[in-house]
Write a protein that binds this DNA or RNA. Structure first.
Lengths: 254, 254
DNA sequence: AAGTGGTCTAGACCACGTC
DNA sequence: ACGTGGTCTAGACCACTTT
């Protein structure tokens, strides 16, 4: 409960050494470990800096630096006077972190997810590579439509490792009113940490055209995403086709 | 030279107050000001933390926190044992900060910019809005092709305020072997700080199709970018058409 | 009043690069 | 040997929230 393993100051060790890690990073790793183990749930407060400092036998400043980094990583959220909280996809501010879509005009309607299909299959070559699982391993495929108001804007095909998503079904999806990641977090204890997207332009095939209410051959934005949870483990692979007639993909470069 | 104006501790002042600013942010603003004034040029060292602390009459730790933020903002680069440097677009590591393009296979060829045209015009409605200048103000328009090896991949049309880019011509562009932003920095003293991109999928028109060597109507990625320099002043508006047959636009979400 | 995170300071020591 | 940034500590005080 209190002794955290082996902490060391890395004296007389090269900073280039692969084993080198400053104290605050070791603390960060320990907090991460506790987070991963579910010691504190998303949305809850974690112990105060003083408590953590006592627990890990370091100064408050060192804990602070560890938490600073984790806040920058969107893993924790600090609230002055209240405490430090575990970040959650239920937080409305997290909604557009992974959805970089904005209306061309000032349309403010919230996106709404409409599940279309959900079935089980075995991982093909591509899915197994993207998700880091064996070919032939069970996966779940979800198709869903994203609407802004009445406009259909995105059609998504989502590949999930069956191991992790036991009990996911079309009904479960339809019963959930929030975001998909919010469901994953609440129902499966899975927090999405980061993602990588690859964008290309493609022509709408017949099926996509019908669903998005555009004509066949219309240029669409193809967005392939791999999403990672703790420990950089891939847990979602999806391909989205975005209709960019009334919306665009917004990206801040800094 | 040494007294930096009015620094204050903001005692008995609400942190929500619009005038509130912690000391390290005031220091950050002062360093930013010196940067903007050209006191230290891109690629050069700035004074040590001790010197800056003495100059601004604060502790080294406060200067450190200011520099920390500026390093996170990609304005400064810290090098242990050597000093802190002004970030530069001449640094090869900065190349892909604003170019999120990667080859689908492992092709490692460096991108090469081929200037096509460069002419003067007057700002239309859209250009004036994007660049924050008067309609009718002088602008410079550049068209250029980006090639990876022998493959044409991006055709860019770039709108620049004439005020800032005196003396820019096709010859100047052709004589420069580095990146465009590297030229802007070196020749016009203009550092690009951040940018915002809006992506859509469009069909190739005849002209773009010819240059990119694809057939007319091929889906292309349209990337509109507004780039800002110090003080969030827009100084570039460009529209790129990306051929995504052999390359994709890579985006990290975190 | 008590507890939390936020800021500022001062000092010690370490690792890295240069002379 | 020296100067630079990097880490760690300890203590003081402030601002925000809750009791």
């Amino acid at each position: 409960m209190d002794v955290p393993g082996i902490l060391c100051f890395n004296t007389s060790m090269s900073q280039d050494s692969p084993t080198f890690s400053p104290l605050y990073r070791q603390i960060k790793a320990l907090i991460l470990q506790a987070l991963e183990a579910g010691e504190w749930r998303p949305g809850q407060v974690i112990p105060s800096e003083q408590e953590l400092a006592a627990r890990f036998n370091v100064s408050q400043g060192t804990v602070r630096k560890a938490i600073d980094e984790m806040a920058a990583d969107n893993l924790l959220v600090r609230k002055q006077g209240k405490g430090t909280y575990v970040a959650s996809h239920n937080d409305p501010r997290a909604l557009f972190r992974f959805l970089r879509l904005a209306p061309i005009d000032g349309d403010l309607s919230h996106p709404q997810s409409v599940p279309l299909d959900c079935w089980r299959a075995k991982a093909g070559q591509e899915a197994s590579r993207m998700l880091g699982i064996e070919p032939g391993a069970p996966i779940i495929i979800v198709r869903r439509l994203l609407k802004f108001g009445v406009k259909p804007v995105v059609i998504d095909e989502i590949y999930l490792p069956g191991e992790v998503f036991h009990g996911l079904s079309l009904e479960v999806l339809q019963d959930w009113s929030g975001s998909l990641y919010s469901l994953f977090e609440t129902r499966f204890g899975l927090r999405m940490i980061r993602a990588q997207e690859r964008l290309r332009a493609v022509a709408a095939d017949r099926s996509a055209a019908e669903i998005l209410k555009v004509s066949e051959g219309t240029p669409l934005l193809s967005v392939e995403r791999v999403t990672y949870t703790y420990g950089d483990k891939p847990v979602e692979w999806r391909r989205g086709l975005y209709s960019t007639a009334d919306h665009f993909y917004l990206n801040e470069l800094s």
